[in-house]
Design a protein around this nucleic acid. Structure first.
Ligand SMILES: [Mn+2]
Ligand SMILES: [Mn+2]
Ligand SMILES: [Zn+2]
Ligand SMILES: [Zn+2]
Lengths: 139, 139
DNA sequence: CTCTATCTGCAAATTGTTTGCATTTACATT
DNA sequence: AATGTAAATGCAAACAATTTGCAGATAGAG
C-alpha cells in the first residue's frame, strides 16, 4: 500500500480517501468485484463516495496495470488486483462461481504467435469454462 | 448454409429472410462484427430489419454454438461464425486490429486444471494482446 | 497556511442490450 | 393453392453499465 502511495506520488496522482478505500477493498477481496460491488463496499468506509469515482479509480488503476479486467460474458466487467503472480480463472457455467487456477500455457505459445504475426506480445487473457464438481450432476 | 437450414428445421426454428441475411453477413466476413455492424450490413440486404432482430438472432446462433462471442475489453461483444477449426486472436493495443493465430496451448493445460479443481472442462476463451508491426514504432 | 492542479459528487447523457406487445410470416397441413 | 398456428419481427420503451460536464472540494507542494 505504501508502494502504491509512492507510485501515485511519482505519477502526479493524489492519494485520496476514496482511492484508498477502493484499493483496500480490492486488496482484501479474494474474489473479483464489479464496479457496483466495489461501490457498495466502499460506501461502508466512505458513505458519500459515488459510482463515478469508482469507475474513474478503476480506470486509473487499470491504466497503470494494477488491475485485471475480467469478462465472464454478462455485459459487465469485474476487477481484481494484478498481483505479480500470474494465473487464470475457471468459471462454472452452472453456478457462475470462479476459481483461480495456477500455471499458464500461453508463454510457451508466444514464439509461435510471433512467428505467425510479427506482433510484440504484451499480455493475454485466458478463461476456462466448465462445470464445477457440485454442478456436474445437476446439468 | 443448407446444413444450417436443415439444422434450424430440425430444431423447430424458422429460416427467415432476416436470419438468412445475418448468417450470410457473418459467413462472408473475415473479421468479427459487433451487433451494430451486423445490423448496418443487414440493412443493405433488408432495409427494415431492426437491431432487436440482430440481437435475437445472435443469441439464437450462440445458443447452438454456431457463433463465438469475443470480448476485447471495450464494453461490447463481437461475433464470428464458429468454424470447426479452433483458433484465437491477437489484438493490437495500438490500432485495435485483430488477427487470427493458429494453434492453441490450452488443451495441454487442461489436465492440470482438472487436477486442481475437479471441473469438467467445456471450453475456453483466450486472447493475446500486443502491438502489430505497424504500431510497434509509433508507441 | 496558501495556492492550484487534481479530484470528487451529482445529474444528465451515452451506449449496449433486453423486453413487452401487437402484427406479420414461415411452413406444416389441409 | 388456401388455411391455421406457432414462431418471429418491428417498434417503442425499459434497463444496465459506463461515461461526461461542470461547479465545488481537497491533497499536497511550496
Ligand atoms: Mn496466462
Ligand atoms: Mn484455444
Ligand atoms: Zn458450479
Ligand atoms: Zn496495430
Amino acid at each position: 500500500m505504501n508502494d502504491i502511495k509512492d507510485f501515485f506520488a511519482a505519477s502526479g496522482c493524489k492519494m485520496t480517501k476514496q482511492r484508498k478505500a477502493i484499493l483496500e477493498i480490492l486488496m482484501d477481496s479474494r474474489t473479483c468485484l464489479s464496479a457496483e460491488e466495489i461501490f457498495i463496499k466502499a460506501k461502508n468506509i466512505n458513505p458519500n463516495i459515488c459510482l463515478t469515482t469508482v469507475y474513474r479509480t478503476i480506470e486509473l488503476l487499470a491504466s497503470y496495470r494494477m488491475l485485471n479486467k475480467i469478462d465472464i460474458g454478462d455485459n459487465k466487467y469485474r476487477y481484481e488486483i494484478n498481483s505479480n503472480t500470474h494465473y487464470h480463472h475457471i468459471i462454472c457455467m452452472g453456478c457462475k462461481k470462479m476459481f483461480k487456477v495456477q500455471g499458464c500455457p500461453v508463454p510457451d505459445f508466444e514464439s509461435s504467435i510471433r512467428a505467425q504475426t510479427k506482433f510484440k506480445i504484451i499480455g493475454h487473457r485466458l478463461e476456462v469454462y466448465g462445470y464445477c464438481p457440485e454442478c456436474q450432476g445437476t446439468v
